[in-house]
């Protein structure tokens, strides 16, 4: 079981990376005009040359405020890691109930002390814990539906992966994302003999990706 979990985590981490990069754009600055079309929103990705200068604000003793503003395309640096306080409701929203393990993970997800705030950050421990909670929730989610009573095939996996993505990410998965998910379902879970657990692993991989853990 432990071996299976570790194997699943390895698969998961590659999946997290893929989902986290989906739709992001890295282009040289100063190209002028839109850098491309964001596949998720359909909106043009604008570069610095498109940025209005904005007003200047006077600093004490002369000088101008805002000179430290960073460059970059619109839409960059938009994603943040969901805090524990939000995950409690978010798991319940997409799974129908909160995984029983989750309340024990407040410290793992760096829940800040009273009256305090810090920006949540993902770590190997928090991602693995998120995967454990997701797998527990996904075992329930795949426990009775007939769709999960047989082993995943490339066709059924593609269908169910799309459903998982829509449900957990609130967006349609791209073909590359579906391919990775299908690989999880049909290849990476081969050592697992229980069909429903195969689906639960697949479900958990999608649920532990950046599409769900960030906003």
């Amino acid at each position: 079981m432990k071996t299976k979990s570790i194997r699943a985590l390895v698969v998961l981490l590659s999946f997290v990376g893929l989902a986290g990069c989906a739709g992001s754009v890295s282009e040289p600055e100063g190209t002028g005009g839109p850098l491309g079309i964001d596949p998720k929103t359909g909106l043009p990705i604008l570069g610095d040359d498109d940025a209005p200068a904005g007003r200047s604000y006077k600093a004490f003793g002369g000088g101008t405020l805002g000179s430290d503003r960073i460059s970059g395309a619109a839409g960059e640096e938009m994603k943040r890691v969901k805090p524990y306080s939000a995950l409690v409701g978010e798991y319940a929203r997409v799974l129908g109930k909160t995984p029983a393990l989750l309340p024990t993970f407040a410290a793992t997800f760096s829940e800040p002390p009273a009256r305090w705030f810090f920006e949540p950050e993902a770590s190997a421990v928090s991602v693995f814990s998120a995967y454990r909670a997701a797998f527990q929730g996904c075992l329930d989610l795949t426990a009775t539906d007939a769709a999960y009573a047989t082993a995943p095939t490339p066709t059924t996996a593609a269908t169910e992966c799309g459903k998982f993505a829509s449900r957990f990410w609130t967006r349609t998965a791209g073909s590359a994302e579906i391919d990775v998910c299908v690989n999880v379902a049909t290849v990476q879970t081969q050592p697992e003999t229980d069909f429903r657990r195969k689906w639960a692993y697949t479900c958990a991989a999608v649920l532990t990706s950046a599409g769900f853990l960030s906003f």
Binding site: Y57, L65, R69, G72, A74
Partner: peptide, 26 residues
């Protein structure tokens, strides 16, 4: 001062985005 008003909106951006405003958001 301008610095106070600038600070207020930088706080607003940081609260909402987890970072300061960018040039594009001027």
């Amino acid at each position: 001062s301008d610095s106070f008003r600038f600070r207020a909106c930088r706080l607003a951006f940081t609260f909402l985005y987890g970072r300061a405003e960018t040039k594009l958001e001027a």
